[in-house]
Design a protein around this nucleic acid. Structure first.
Length: 553
RNA sequence: GCGCCCAUAGCUCAAUGGAUAGAGUCCGGGUCUUCUAAACCCGUUAUCCAGGUUCGAUUCCUGGUGGGCGCACCA
């Protein structure tokens, strides 16, 4: 097995510390500018050792490692800097090794990434988006959908098994309202009853009028159920269409109605009752959390009219999810659901289920902004900016990159004008442009018929060792760190930041390291190999974000 | 009232309890007869307040202040 340069260094550090193991939890990073003059990679190992040996000085522990440090195949020199950093300068062979690994593994790079002992689950059941099928997706759904799909891509790349699931709330009060709304539109549009009043709490969006006009004559407007079925089927199609446009897919669409029809909800209610977590009041069943690890307000499970609530259905759903054997059942919910997380956990606990295998990511709201000013949404019923409209205006790439570029638990602004700008203000362009530039060199190389002897001999000449080359190679090596951080912290923004850094390093390199006009063929070829490796990592990382890597811009 | 999230440069945002708190934008000044100047290079600017824990706090804890959200027989 070919060790990555980072894992190689971790191993060396652990060995010099006189310990066993691979040191896979040791953080490695690019040092700050003033250190980077002399060193490429940095490990705050003194602190890690001090944590294991209370009372010992971190700096002294780092120094001890340096004393035990022997000459290594890939290391030019090592040094210790206060407060406890161990810094390493890679040699030419190590730089070449990084590029070799990228070019050899291509889109699988970094294939040797070790995540098994990093508190990552081996398999995840990821539920996200799950918007009610009462209308097309609106902008508020975008962040959760994009986060879920991006985490899926990242985890899958690491070798974690991920199942993506969409829970369809296709039953209940909201769906009834939907049915009544469509029936009213039908009477207005098809039966010509313009004067009838539209339900006050109905769904007033134009999309229902549009659907009504497409319905056949002769339907019974009194049959609300029929209209509800028609409407939710149609709305689900609209949702699927938008998700396809976003490049977000699901392995399974799970209808809430099946849990009621199959009797799971009734069984859950019975179990809660039997275990003493139900109190009957005014004909309704209330969930009581007394005696559990925490306490919550009492919540209705079964209404006084005998129908189960969403909460009861959701407990049945989560019981099903936990029974499928995943190490983690993870939900992505809007931050307005935060009070709901402990409620579900307590419910699962009351059912004797492993509530610790359930968790939720809460995504904060995104404010829509145009040229720095908030976009005012019309107060008129049912009118909002749909996801489809936003996608049509700014495109998938800008939307996915932008919404992925902030931690989910921070609110953010999304500026429509900024996202459309084809300039550096818009980070997605810095990154895509770097990729396009390298493709452009490749085209020019073809056009000019440039071929170097080293290329045909398949010999990799050594890389240069100047500052810009080193920075670029180190950035390639650090891809695995950004990937792991995103996976562990459940936030792709580490990856977008990484890409901005990598692309920035490349643009800087590009200015001073011409390739095709370089007369030294060995140097030209080694530069070209580095560019190809950069292109590969840009392409891989962009695809993990669900953003395209264009050949031309 | 109770609870959750957030507060860093003029603006939009980074920072795994650790090095001189980073990017981009804005503003000012330099770079193209040379693979895309949609770029590059140089320069100015910041941790909301008050305590606490720690060798060390933007980060953790307590209390404020300010913003967003939630506390349904809705989902």
């Amino acid at each position: 097995m070919r060790l990555s340069i980072l894992d190689y260094l971790r191993q060396a550090l652990v060995t010099a510390a006189g310990q066993s193991g691979t040191g896979e939890a040791l953080p490695l990073e690019a040092p700050p500018e003033h250190i980077r003059q002399d060193f490429d990679l940095s490990c705050p190992i003194g602190f890690a050792l001090a944590a294991q040996n209370p009372g010992q000085k971190p700096l002294a522990l780092a120094q001890k490692i340096l004393n035990n440090w022997s000459a290594l195949e890939f290391v030019e020199k090592a040094g210790v800097h206060p407060p406890a950093y161990f810094n390493v300068r890679l040699n030419a062979k190590a730089l070449a090794e990084v590029v070799d690994q990228v070019l050899e593994e291509q889109e699988r790079y970094p294939s040797q990434i070790s995540w098994k002992n990093q508190n990552l689950p081996a398999s995840v059941l990821l539920e996200f988006c799950s918007a009610n099928p009462t209308g097309p997706l609106h902008f508020g759904h975008a962040r959760g959908a994009i986060l879920g799909n991006t985490l899926f891509r990242i985890w899958r790349h690491l070798g974690i098994e991920v199942q993506c699931e969409y829970y369809i709330n296709d039953i209940g009060t909201q769906i009834e309202r939907l049915g009544c709304s469509l029936a009213a539109r039908y009477r207005q549009e098809i039966l010509g009853e313009r004067e009838i009043s539209f339900p006050e709490d109905g769904y007033g969006g134009e999309y229902l009028s549009e659907l009504a006009r497409r319905l056949p004559k002769g339907l019974d407007p009194g049959n609300a159920k029929q209209f509800a079925d028609l409407a939710k089927k149609e709305m689900l199609e609209l949702i699927k269409k938008d998700l396809k446009e976003l490049d977000v897919s699901f392995d399974r669409w799970y209808p809430e109605s099946s849990l009621h029809a199959g009797g799971q909800v009734a069984r859950i209610l019975g179990r809660l009752k039997a275990s003493g977590h139900v109190e009957e009041k005014e004909g309704a069943w209330w969930f009581v959390s007394k005696g559990l690890s925490d306490e919550d307000k009492e919540r209705v499970l079964k209404r006084s009219d005998g129908r189960a609530t969403y909460f009861a259905g959701d407990l049945a759903y989560h019981e099903d999810k936990l029974s499928r054997g995943h190490a983690l059942a993870l939900n992505i919910w809007g931050a307005d659901h935060h009070g709901y997380v402990p409620r579900v956990k307590l419910g699962l606990e009351a059912l004797g289920l492993p509530a610790k295998n359930f968790d939720a990511i809460l995504v904060q709201m995104v404010r829509l902004v145009r040229d720095g000013a908030p976009v005012k949404l019309s107060k008129r019923a049912g009118e909002y900016l749909t996801l489809g409209e936003i996608l049509g205006e700014v495109g998938r790439d800008a939307l996915r990159f932008s919404l992925n570029s902030r931690s989910p638990n921070a609110q953010m602004d999304f500026d429509l004008e900024l996202a459309k700008k084809k300039a550096m203000e818009n980070p997605v362009f810095l990154v895509q442009y770097a990729h396009a530039r390298i493709c452009s060199i490749a085209r020019e190389k073809e056009t000019r018929g440039v071929a170097w002897p080293e290329e045909s001999a398949d010999q990799a000449p050594p890389l240069e060792e100047d500052r810009k080359t080193r920075a670029l190679v180190v950035a390639l090596a650090l891809f695995s760190e950004a990937l792991l951080l995103s996976a562990k912290r459940r936030s792709p923004h580490y990856l977008t930041n990484y890409l901005i850094d990598l692309a920035g390093s490349f643009h800087s390199y590009y200015e001073t390291h011409p390739i095709l006009s370089q007369s030294n063929s060995a140097m030209a070829f080694s530069r070209w190999r580095l560019c190809l490796a950069v292109r590969q990592v840009l392409s891989t990382a962009l695809s993990l974000l669900g953003v395209s890597a264009p050949d031309k811009m």
